[in-house]
Design a protein around this nucleic acid. Structure first.
Length: 943
RNA sequence: GCCCGAGUGGCGGAAUGGCAGACGCAGAGGACUCAAAAUCCUCCGAUUGAAAGAUCGUGUGGGUUCGAGUCCCACCUCGGGCACCA
């Protein structure tokens, strides 16, 4: 279903603002802006230094796009024009604005396309980037073109590799939780002020010392369980695995396998990533998602001795150490290493069978809806350290090896899962709290576990007595102190966050700046050997496997390039033969720091000069609420789908760079704004298949496709629902300015909104009226009104100025546009725009419809671009009227209106209200009990 | 199950605790026109009324308040995130 602008007819005035004229105007200004370098933004120092870098700054950032072959979809201009409007407004408000656009161009689609066509991904990637640059230009986005970067450019990924090298050469000091250089760790080992993990540093061999250091690095090779995806032929990060155990790209099964892979020690930053969320101006929803993903939980580590196994103990993590007296059994994950040791001969067969079943069930059948509790007894007994009771040890798959210690103490009276397990297998349930809901302490009568604060019972031994305490907080701290004092455990914090799996067995990504010596030790290449160029090949695909072949092994495309892999280098010990690392970095690597490269994109000496970083991203003192400003981009707009992956990874890298002294900002993105999706009607036929939405016809509320009825639904605009619209087609029809105004006026930026093609004409008509209020449609000459505007008109104009500034400051583009429409409608009623208000009207419109504004600005006689014209400032004198109309309520219902002078005291307003005939009638002769006068707003009389 | 959001005319949406429905679309009427389109003007929540007005009205039910779309409690529906996380 489509709508088109009114067709041009023979008597359409020659100079009407039609789609065709809009396009002429727009093309003209694109050329002029390019030729003049209008949006070039000066830096304080370096190649892009220039005058103006002493002004206050605003750094406005969009999530940069993947350069898909299909070009931009409608969601891109939604966010991009919003930031453009804000950028243009900020420039007119006198700020130095950094605003540009780069490309997140490594990744799977380009590689897969290359596999299909045999064309090198660099070629298609560059073609796609050129195409998207053309599209961005057509939308009139005021990017500084000199600052545009692509993650695939060797001049860019040189620094991605350089940062990797910095991370590799760093360790996280556990005392301060800050990254430090590995040299400082060596110095501490040498001085004996820090103990090595793997032995006595002083007596270690060179190779042993190297292995010790490798254990501390923030980027490290680990032989640990990773997510192996045979269907993609690569491993993927935890964050890239969906809840049902499949890859988010391609939807292939993912298997847990032990493999040697690169990891990033993001867990060392868990607390800071969590705590510093408080410094950020992000929505609570996104903060909650990050908190949830980090999954910090406070509790205790408790050791349970095993009966009959001297020295053997089961260690568990619990968030409720206060309920330890109620622990009546223990459960290990089926994969727990102690299972073999503990299982008695009598139970060995059952345990082995259960473990096999659990193994098979993994990943695929995991999302069992009914979640019946299963498990088997090992035959072993553990000893509750608090009361000496022997409790049975079971294994069950509801306990996960990957969290805590892979073992739990089960307190069935206070945990619903343990309760269900105990009921299923007839295990003891003992109350250790007197529930506050009156159910009593006989657990055999309970329907479920009791969770919450309640007085403790049955909770004492010789040296610890919880009975009488009534809150979890008191119980936990008393128990933790006891555990610590008696050597049975200690307070502990655990996280759901795992270290970040950083290597991929693909082609189209950044090579690692790492080589291995003859002993297999990794060495980071020195900075002057960067970049490690991605070698040329015509075999772009990794070996992929049957998606279900869990035991297959990855083969990276780079593995096949023997000439490239084998390399002779002098890394300080004379020329030696090394093997290059054949992994590439995940797509997230390039997007972890691109905002920093925008600041200084052509700097050859550093990824960003410190002066430029401090100017654009440095902390801005203390915020209004007293918290320190963390620095970072002033505005970051993008979709909510990156809430965990990109935003968590880039925060981590930024903090490492901060610790190592490379940046002054603590966080990369100070204010984050999540744009909504563009939804559009989609239609399914009787088989439930989507049909081309643009060919559906509506008649009297029913929809048909090729004569057959179809069902309408709404979904995210896109190819899969066959309801996508190309933003370029809209530019063709109406011009970019109309598309911009429509996109931003249809609702608040953070809301998803349904596209309605028939509504676009409203935005177009608005711009047409602005044009007509200034330009004669027949002659094309300026036709502003000579007479001075009335006070009434000036009031409307200045109220509009004040409101638009206010709305723009808060990114409320939809209401800002509505206010300008009101002003313009007022001028339309006057018969045109008074000459003395023309500049004001045009500058108000400029952030929204910049091409039309430039054109009108020029025709009004200005020779400079409107880009840096000052945004109008409201004259306070016109913001207050001489008289004000008060609604008068009687008992909360509006009964009348009175007009009094603006500065009338409340007593006069009250008197005027009471004197009003309609008010008197509503009062029915009675006298008011109370009169409330809200100055400037209203009067309410309580009768 | 848990954690976030959101429910307002025919539609998209607007409202620092203070006149609900700004602005736009659709719709109705009028002006202009030979006519149509475009443009301009007026109307446009429901019920009732000739009109003035009256009554009702922001998912449902309670509450706080002189006054609630807005704040509080409970519930319903939809959207998003997490999900046997100890």
């Amino acid at each position: 279903m489509s709508a088109t602008p009114a067709p041009d007819t023979a008597d359409t005035p020659a100079h009407r603002y039609t789609g065709a004229l809009a396009q002429q105007i727009e093309a003209r200004w694109h050329d002029r802006w390019d030729a003049a370098g209008t949006f070039n933004t000066p830096n304080p120092v370096g190649p892009l230094a220039g005058p103006g870098a002493d002004k206050p700054k605003t750094f406005i950032l969009d999530m940069f796009p993947y350069p898909s072959g299909a070009g931009l979809h409608m969601g891109h201009p939604l966010g991009f024009t919003a930031t453009d409007m804000y950028a243009r407004y900020q420039r007119m408000a006198g700020r130095n604005v950094l605003y540009t656009m780069g490309f997140d161009a490594f990744g799977l689609p380009a590689e897969q396309y290359a596999v299909q066509t045999g064309q090198h991904p660099a070629i298609t990637t560059n073609q796609n980037i050129d195409n998207i640059r053309r599209q961005l230009r057509r939308l009139g986005l005021s990017h500084d073109p000199r600052r545009s970067v692509s993650t695939t450019d060797p001049d860019y990924y040189r620094w991605t590799q350089w940062i990797f090298r910095e991370i590799f050469n760093a360790w996280c000091d556990p005392d301060t939780k800050k990254a430090r250089r590995i040299d400082e760790l060596v110095a501490e080992f040498d001085a004996g002020t820090r103990a090595a993990k793997t032995g006595d540093w002083a007596t270690m061999s060179k190779a042993e010392r190297r292995r010790e250091l490798d254990q501390w690095r923030l980027a490290y090779v680990s032989d640990a369980p990773v997510n192996w995806c045979p269907g993609l032929g690569t491993v993927v990060a935890n964050e890239e695995v969906t809840a049902d155990g499949r890859s988010d790209r391609g939807n292939f099964p993912v298997f847990k396998r032990n493999m040697r892979q690169w990891m990033m020690r993001i867990t060392a930053y868990a607390d800071r990533l969590l705590d510093d969320l408080d410094l950020l101006d992000w929505t609570d929803a996104i903060k909650a998602m990050q908190r949830n993903w980090i999954g910090r939980s406070e509790g205790a580590t408790v050791h349970f001795p095993v009966a009959g196994h001297d020295g053997e103990r089961i260690t568990v993590f619990t968030t409720r150490p206060d309920t330890l007296f109620g622990a009546t059994f223990m459960v290990l994950a089926p994969e727990h290493p102690l299972v073999d040791t503990l299982t008695t001969a009598e139970h060995a067969d059952a345990v082995a069978a259960y473990r096999r079943a659990a193994e098979a069930k993994k990943d695929v059948d995991r999302q069992d809806e009914n979640r019946e509790k299963t498990g088997v007894f090992t035959g072993a007994y553990a000893v509750n350290p608090l009361n000496g009771q022997q409790i049975p040890v079971w294994i069950a798959d509801y306990v996960l090896m990957g969290y805590g210690y892979g073992a739990i103490m089960a307190v069935p009276c206070g945990d619903q899962r343990d309760f269900e397990f105990a009921r299923t297998f007839g295990l003891d349930i003992v109350a250790i709290q007197a529930p506050t809901d009156g159910r009593g302490t006989d657990c055999s009568t309970w329907a479920d576990a009791f969770v919450g604060d309640a007085p403790y019972v049955n909770s004492s031994n010789d040296s610890l007595n919880l009975n009488g305490l009534a809150t979890k907080a008191e119980g936990v701290s008393a128990t933790n102190a006891w555990l610590e004092a008696h050597g049975h455990g200690h307070a502990t914090i655990t996280y759901k966050l795992r270290d970040w799996l950083f290597s991929r067995q693909r082609y189209w990504g950044e090579p690692f700046p790492i080589v291995y010596d003859a002993d297999g030790n990794p060495h980071a290449l020195p900075a002057d050997m960067l970049p490690v160029l991605l070698p040329d090949t015509d075999q772009f695909s990794p070996r992929t496997f049957d998606p279900d072949d869990a035991m297959s092994n990855p083969e990276s495309p780079l593995d096949r390039l023997g000439d490239w892999v084998e390399v002779t280098l002098d890394l300080g010990d004379g020329p030696q033969t090394y093997r290059r690392d054949t992994n590439v970095m995940p797509q997230w690597a390039g997007s972890c720091w691109y905002e920093l490269r925008y600041l200084d994109p052509t700097n050859d000496d550093a990824f960003v000069a410190p002066e430029n970083e401090a100017y654009w991203m440095g902390p801005q003192g203390t915020k209004a609420d007293g918290t320190p400003h963390p620095g970072g981009a002033d505005l970051y707009v993008g979709g909510v789908e990156h809430a965990v992956l990109h935003l968590l990874y880039s925060r981590f890298w930024h903090k490492v760079l901060f610790d190592l002294g490379h940046v002054s900002s603590v966080e990369p993105f100070h204010k984050l704004f999540n744009q909504g999706y563009i939804l559009a009607a989609a239609y399914t036929d009787e088989r439930g298949m989507y049909v081309d939405a643009h060919a559906v016809e509506e008649r009297d509320g029913t929809y048909t496709f090729e004569g057959r009825p179809v069902t309408r639904e709404y979904g995210k605009m896109g190819k899969s629902l066959k309801n996508a619209l190309d933003p370029m087609d809209l530019c063709e029809l109406y011009g970019a300015d109309t598309l911009r105004v429509y996109l931003e006026s249809m609702g608040p930026l953070d809301a998803s909104r349904p596209w309605e093609s028939k509504d676009v004409v409203g935005a177009h008509r608005f711009l047409q009226r602005v044009w007509r209020n200034i330009i004669d449609e027949d002659t094309g000459t300026v036709r502003t009104l000579a007479e001075e505007p009335s006070t009434d008109t000036l009031r409307v104009a200045h109220r509009t100025i004040a409101a638009v500034s206010e709305e723009l400051d808060n990114l409320r583009f939809n209401t800002a546009i509505a206010k300008i429409i009101e002003l313009n409608n007022h001028l339309t009623k006057l018969g045109g725009c008074p000459a003395s208000l023309a500049d004001t009207l045009v500058t108000l419109v400029a952030p929204f419809a910049p091409h039309m504004a430039e054109e009108l600005w020029a025709r009004l006689g200005h020779t400079d671009s409107i880009t840096y014209a000052p945004f109008p400032v409201a004259d306070p004198a016109y913001l207050v009227a001489e008289t004000v109309e008060y609604p008068v309520q009687v008992n909360g219902k509006v009964r009348s209106r009175i007009t009094v002078s603006t500065d009338a005291p409340a007593a006069d307003v009250e008197a005027a209200a009471l004197a009003d005939d309609k008010v008197q009638a509503a009062l029915g002769g009675g006298s008011p009990k109370k009169v409330i006068v809200v100055p400037g707003r209203m009067v309410n009389i309580v009768a």
